[in-house]
C-alpha cells in the first residue's frame, strides 16, 4: 500500500468552493480574494507541521506554485498533491464551444499542437489517437507544478466519474502509466463513487493507484451509500484512501467527523481550514483518533 500524508490541506476554501452552502462559498471567495491571505494560510499550515497540500490546477494555482518556488526555503519538506483539471474551466468552454472546440482552445498555443501542425478543425484528425490528446491535456494542466515535489497526481472527480460511467478502460490505464512514467508520481483519482471505482480499477489491472473520496457518517457525496463504503473499508483494499469532505461542508462537528474517519481505518485526510486555529484543532483530533 502506498503511504500517504496523514494530513493534507485542501484548497476549496481558497477558491470559494463549499459543498454545503453557496453563501459560505461566497464568504470564502471574498476572504481569500487576496492572494496574500492564501499564502498566509499555507505558512500557518506549514508552521504547524502540515507539509502536504492538495492543489487543483485552477486559475489561482499558478500563482500559488510561483510562490512556493520563490519561497522554497520557507517550506522545507513541501509535498504537493496536484488535482487536474479545473473542471469548470472545461465545463464553461464546452458549454460555449462544444467538446472539440474546448479541446482546441485548451491546447492552443501548446508546442505539441504547433509541432503537429494542428490548427483549427484538423484537430479532429487526431481523434484516432485520443491517448495523444489525453497526454497533451495532462501536460497543459501539469505545467504549473514544474520543479515542485509532488507525490500523487489526482484526476478530478467530475472527469474520473464520467470516465468510470463511460467505462473508458484504456483512458484509465493510459492515465496511470503516463503519470508514473512522465512525472514519477502515483496516479490518483478523486471520486464520489469509491467502491465502484476501486472495483473497476482492479478489473483494469491497475495495481498502483490511490483514491480520494468523501468519507462522512451522513453519506454526503458517497454513492451509492454509506453502508457500501463501510463494507468496502472493512474488506481488503488494494488502494490507499485519502478521505475528503469529512466535515460535509460544515454539517458534521469536527470531533465526530475525525472519529468516524478513524473508525473506518483511514489514515489520511484532505481537509479545508481557513484559520490557524482550525488547522490546530484538526491536527489534535487526528492525533486522538487516527
Amino acid at each position: 500500500m502506498i503511504e500517504l500524508d496523514p494530513l493534507i490541506l485542501g484548497d476549496n476554501q481558497f477558491f470559494g468552493i463549499n459543498h454545503m452552502s453557496q453563501e459560505k462559498a461566497q464568504q470564502m471567495a471574498e476572504r481569500f480574494n487576496d492572494m496574500q491571505a492564501i499564502f498566509e494560510a499555507y505558512r500557518a499550515a506549514h508552521s504547524l507541521g502540515i507539509h502536504a497540500f492538495m492543489l487543483n490546477s485552477n486559475e489561482k494555482a499558478g500563482t500559488i506554485c510561483d510562490y512556493f518556488r520563490d519561497h522554497r526555503s520557507e517550506f522545507p519538506g513541501l509535498v504537493l498533491y496536484p488535482s487536474i483539471p479545473y473542471p469548470h474551466k472545461y465545463a464553461n468552454l464546452v458549454a460555449e464551444q462544444g467538446i472539440v472546440g474546448a479541446i482546441q482552445t485548451a491546447l492552443s498555443g501548446q508546442s505539441a499542437v504547433n509541432l503537429l501542425g494542428l490548427a483549427g478543425k484538423s484537430l479532429s484528425l487526431l481523434a484516432g489517437d485520443l491517448t495523444r490528446i489525453l497526454v497533451m491535456l495532462i501536460d497543459v494542466e501539469m505545467k504549473i507544478y514544474r520543479h515542485l515535489d509532488f507525490k500523487a497526481v489526482y484526476l478530478q472527480n467530475i472527469l474520473t466519474d464520467l470516465l468510470l460511467g463511460l467505462e473508458f478502460r484504456e483512458v484509465f490505464i493510459e492515465y496511470c502509466s503516463y503519470i508514473e512514467k512522465k512525472f514519477r508520481a502515483v496516479p490518483g483519482f478523486l471520486t464520489m463513487n469509491v467502491p465502484r471505482l476501486a472495483t473497476y480499477l482492479e478489473s483494469c489491472g491497475i495495481e498502483r493507484a490511490v483514491i480520494c473520496g468523501a468519507v462522512n457518517k451522513i453519506g454526503y457525496l458517497m454513492s451509492p451509500d454509506v453502508v457500501s463504503y463501510e463494507e468496502y473499508f472493512r474488506g481488503s483494499q488494494n488502494y490507499s484512501i485519502t478521505a475528503m469532505s469529512i466535515f460535509a461542508g460544515g454539517a458534521i462537528p469536527p470531533r465526530d467527523a475525525v472519529r468516524y474517519v478513524g473508525q473506518q481505518g483511514i489514515r489520511s485526510i484532505v481537509f479545508g481550514a481557513s484559520s490557524r486555529n482550525h488547522m490546530q484543532a484538526t491536527i489534535e483530533l487526528m492525533g486522538e483518533f487516527a
Partner: peptide, 15 residues
C-alpha cells in the same frame, strides 16, 4: 436547511 440536511444518495454520482 442545507443540501447536507435533505439530500438522498444516488446509486452512481457523475455531475
Amino acid at each position: 436547511a442545507y443540501i447536507t440536511n435533505c439530500f438522498t444518495p444516488v446509486p452512481f454520482y457523475v455531475r
